[in-house]
Design a protein around this nucleic acid. Sequence first.
DNA 1: TTGTAGGCGTTATCAA
DNA 2: TTGATAACGCCTACAA
Lengths: 349, 349
Amino acid sequence: MNIELNVSRMKVIIISVTMKDVARKAGLSIATISKYINGGNVLKENRVIIDKAIKELGFEVNEIARGLKTNKTMTVGLLIPSLENIFFTSILSNIESILIDKGYSTIICDYKEDKSLEKQKLDFLVKKMVDGIVTMPMGCDLEIINSVIGRNIPVVLIDRALKGVDCDAVLVDNLNASYNAVEQLIILGHKRIGIICGPDDIYTAQERLRGYERVHEDYAMTVDHKLVKKGDYQIESGYRLLLELIKMKEPPTAVLVTNYEMTLGAIMAINESDIKIPDDISFIGFDNLQLAKVVKPPLSIVIQPVKQIGEVAANMLLKRLRGDGSSFPSMVRLKTELILKDSVRKIGD
Amino acid sequence: MNIELNVSRMKVIIISVTMKDVARKAGLSIATISKYINGGNVLKENRVIIDKAIKELGFEVNEIARGLKTNKTMTVGLLIPSLENIFFTSILSNIESILIDKGYSTIICDYKEDKSLEKQKLDFLVKKMVDGIVTMPMGCDLEIINSVIGRNIPVVLIDRALKGVDCDAVLVDNLNASYNAVEQLIILGHKRIGIICGPDDIYTAQERLRGYERVHEDYAMTVDHKLVKKGDYQIESGYRLLLELIKMKEPPTAVLVTNYEMTLGAIMAINESDIKIPDDISFIGFDNLQLAKVVKPPLSIVIQPVKQIGEVAANMLLKRLRGDGSSFPSMVRLKTELILKDSVRKIGD
DNA sequence: TTGTAGGCGTTATCAA
DNA sequence: TTGATAACGCCTACAA
């Protein structure tokens, strides 16, 4: 036990009180203290004594030392594509809250949408001996993920699936998210519906486009590929692509924009043009409820269950960390919510 | 050394190779291996042997075990008000990149703008025995910060200062940020300049308002307090307060909005009204260059040195972690950049 | 230059 | 129920 006397403030700071100290104070052995801490059998009267000693000394278990014995670090790694995307960080926020409650700390890494960085950071997490990992994968590098799983480190995938990886996953039903949104537009009589998609190589973007295509099939409508715009999930591309759409010879009467940043850009573009929502174009955006409420008219929007994603992922990981390997691998597909507001209108026939 | 044979894939996975294993393979003692790892004196020929053994076994130092001896965890705590604010997370992203390069992992916590959570998370970080902490404090609770510093854990404050805390800090010159922005508007002939501020109890908001006031003093202009709107740094308040400003009997001819979210809301409000930038109102926003470029006309904007804040903070902490206590406490005040675009115009006299 | 031995703060085994 | 005692993987005097 180190005692540090801060004379200038007359305050005593005690650091690193160990079980040894508690044992001495309680007049018992270290082994008994350890048992008490870990819920073993200790005489009732001794429990009181130990409890008192712990409180008085301000003892706290040294997790590092414990980790050395137990091979647990009480740490989980969280790996996301970017820390500069509010959708990702919101999910992190929820995961972190839940895990911290259970005593886990989280090492958060972002790989800046870079596949080689993704691998590096994953290696880093493994080296730091995290007990588990939650990741939004980008590369299709199931090799790496599998090597992590092979080390008996539970991994939970979120947002993006990886074909060929046997691994728990929490996904969003992106396909039906866009299916339902576009279907509403079709029901309202729209025949030419534009979509601003994300990059081809991103799982969620593929699925959202697929939903758009399938609903067209189901309603026996052919897709005009000129109405399908591929963006990069950034503000600027939403802005640019929306302008492209409305400047077409035969512009769409409705449009679905498939993430927050692009929705933002698209709204900016519309605001600056002379076309009006919903008179000239019906509009459905994605992801950010706060934004949708502020815009006039209120924006119709597809909401992803951000909170739920975090909860499910965190609890799934906690389950594995508890050693519960039942129904592995389990894949949860969460539903989005479609909020329809005045930004969409019926098309007269 | 545990060897695990994954028969189904015929792949051998070796986990936890220890120095002991390396020592055995190299025919030397553990102490020698340790010396080699830590740069001690080892015979050149033995260096080769050890190096070979390490490579073949894929040995990596167990940082946990090392930490037990050295009292270092090679982990730093990053504590921010919210993970759902891109300004904060961008800074994190930069700090994380730098620290990870030096072998440090980061435990990122957010306190959801809640003072009691802030204290809890700080305690949590201390309990996790982080080697250092970077935090954006909210509470004026210098008591807590001081207790951390008292434990010899270096702390670097960012974005927000804490009066009475002797502590390294990386700040932004918020006062002159708004001073310069408003000054430009004054130079262009504006007499009635509105400002949309953040909450009174947030350091940056106080400073930005102070800059607005001081430039008025310096130009011998009286502040019309009806032009000073207090928001909460969220989209909605930017939207609402801008509407309040333009609906005044005597509306301002120019406005400064003092963070990203409120800038976004304000732009939305303007777009939906019938007033035009810059003809009816000159506009200067804050923080997000990407947004500013997309809007038409391009937005004048105050840019905070996000990247630099992260760099300076990370390097300052690394310096302390190296044990370099020189010029403590050091406070760095970084300058913002004012980018003037077509969203501001000259007022004819 | 190398190796032996003790210790970091826990946990876990096995007698007592 | 309790308490020696031996790990866990690494570092570090000190001795060889």
